[in-house]
Structure formats: C-alpha cells, structure tokens
C-alpha cells in the first residue's frame, strides 16, 4: 500500500492556499483581456483594465488581490490504495491553511460560531473539507479560497420537474440579476442540478473548481453553459454592476440523477478571481 505522510498533505495545502492569492490564473487573465477588448471605451473597459492591473500590483507587492482572502474549501480525492500516515488528515489540512494565512499576510475571516459569539478563530480555520474515496494510488487535492461577497448571493431552488430546462434557465438568470453588483461582477457561475437539496449545492461548488474554458463533457450541458453565458451577458449588468457586456466570464454546470418528484437547482456565484488550484500527490 502506498503511504503518503500528513506532513506532505499539509505542505501541499499550504502551497496551494498561497499560490492562488496574488495573481489571476494565466487563463483567467487571457479571458479578462478578451472581454476588455469587447467593451466600448468607458467605465466597463476601465474597470476591467484596473482589475488586470490589480493582479500585477498584487504579485509585485505580494499583497492579496482581494482583502477577502476567503474561506478555504478543500476537495480531497483519495485513491483507496493510499494510506495516510504520521498524522491526521483533517489536522494536516487545517495546519496548512493556518501556516499559509500567517506567512502570506492573508485576512483571517472565519468566526467560530455562526450565531453566538461569532469570535474570529484568528487563523482562518477550519476549512471546509470534502473527501471522496476512489480507485487508484494517488491523492488529488483541490483547494479554493471562496470569497463571501459572491457566496452570499448564491441561491437554491427546488424546481418542479415540469419546469424543465426553462426552469433552470430562469432561476440562474434571476439569481445573477439579484446578485447585481454585490457579488463583484464579472462573475463565474457554478450550477448544480439534480441529486438532493444538499447534493445540488455540493455539485454547484464542484463546478466552481473547473478551469475557465472547460466544458461539461455532455454536449447538451455544454450547450446550456454557452447559452446561459450569452444570456447573462445580455443582462447588461456589466463589471461591478455599472453597465456593460461583461457580467459573467463562465458558466459551469454539474449534474446528477435525481428523484422523480424534483429538480433541485443551486446557483453558486464566484467572482472574477476564481481562486482555485489542484495538486496531485503520488
């Protein structure tokens, strides 16, 4: 059986947390430049230009692109031939987060209790951790730093099966409209359809881990992603909600079988920073 140490996982999580805060991914930069080219001279174009410059300023000064350095969401896909040794997986993940937020001068944004006290834990832990056991002998660690301006504008609807494709479409558009400037457009839209109420949300979050430009392998869903992106950008909300053609940069849909009585839909909104990365431990 292959052995991977908790220390190695901690280091991987720490590096991942730090690698996403100070610069857009190269692909995201490319996409933002494309959209900037499509905007008429004016506020929308200027805002996109400032966002691209902000990424340069952030990396040159080692300042995070955004002060909301997020809550860490980790998706662990663990091969069943792997044994984690010399420590606890969960503690390794949280220690990685703790060290990254300390050395990276990242904002600690987590409170210990959602209703009572709301005391800052001062090290940005705990992270949200999903684990999945699969075939194989490697560990895939996906890490995202999720900002909450956009998280707050996310929404769930238990649609009726009769609402069908149009139901999904309307709910996505309605959610983006309601989010308006609050979620810091341009946005990335993660949609989860199917499963149960909670699983649709997990799918929507999973969708946000996709690299920009990546499509759903099912052609019907890939087409829906493209159509929704066009329709969202026709809303005219624009960068920061001040008007323009660039409201969203990508729509990602994940789907799963569901019950005969329902069609759960979750729209999880992300901002243009889309801070996430993937590491494979072998």
């Amino acid at each position: 059986m292959k052995k991977i140490t908790a220390e190695k996982i901690k280091e991987a999580v720490k590096e991942a947390c730090l690698s996403i805060q100070y610069r857009y991914s190269p692909k995201m930069e490319e996409v933002l430049k494309d959209y900037m080219g499509k905007e008429e001279p004016g506020l929308a174009k200027n805002i996109l230009k400032i966002l691209l410059e902000n990424s340069d300023t952030a990396s040159e000064n080692r300042l995070p692109m955004c002060q909301d350095t997020g809550m860490i969401v980790v998706r662990m896909t663990i091969g069943q031939e792997v044994q984690i040794v010399d420590g606890s997986l969960r503690e390794a993940i949280n220690q990685g987060v703790r060290e990254a937020y300390d050395v990276g001068y990242l904002r600690k944004s987590i409170v210990d209790d959602p209703i009572f006290d709301r005391k800052n834990t001062k090290d940005n832990t705990p992270a949200i951790v999903y684990t999945d056991i699969v075939d194989g002998d490697e560990i895939v660690i996906e890490v995202a730093a999720k900002g909450f301006g956009s998280e707050n504008m996310s929404a769930l609807k238990m649609c009726k099966p009769s609402e069908g494709l149009n139901g999904v479409r309307q709910f996505v558009l309605e959610t983006v409209k309601k989010a308006g400037p609050n979620a810091c457009p341009p946005l990335i839209i993660g949609v989860g359809v199917g499963g149960t109420m909670d699983y649709a949300a997990v799918l929507a979050k999973k969708a946000l881990f996709r690299e920009i430009g990546e499509e759903n392998p099912d052609e019907r869903y890939a087409n829906l992603e493209k159509e929704l992106l066009i329709e969202i950008n026709e809303l005219g909300i624009g960068p920061q909600g001040l008007g323009g053609k660039t409201t969203a940069l990508g729509v990602f849909i994940e789907h799963y079988p569901t019950h005969i009585a329902s069609m759960p839909v979750v729209v999880n909104i992300n901002c243009h920073m889309a801070r996430h990365t993937k590491v494979v431990l072998k």
């Binding site: 805002i47 400032i50 966002l51 410059e53 902000n54 990424s55 300023t57 952030a58 000064n61 300042l63 995070p64 692109m65 955004c66 002060q67 909301d68 301006g149 400037p181 810091c184 920061q240 901002c271 243009h272 920073m273």
Partner: peptide, 10 residues
C-alpha cells in the same frame, strides 16, 4: 472596485 484590493490598498 470589488476585487481590486491590492491596488486600493496601495
């Protein structure tokens, strides 16, 4: 501008 934190911090 939301998301231009580094530039605004400067």
């Amino acid at each position: 501008i939301g998301g231009a934190g580094a530039m605004l911090g400067k």
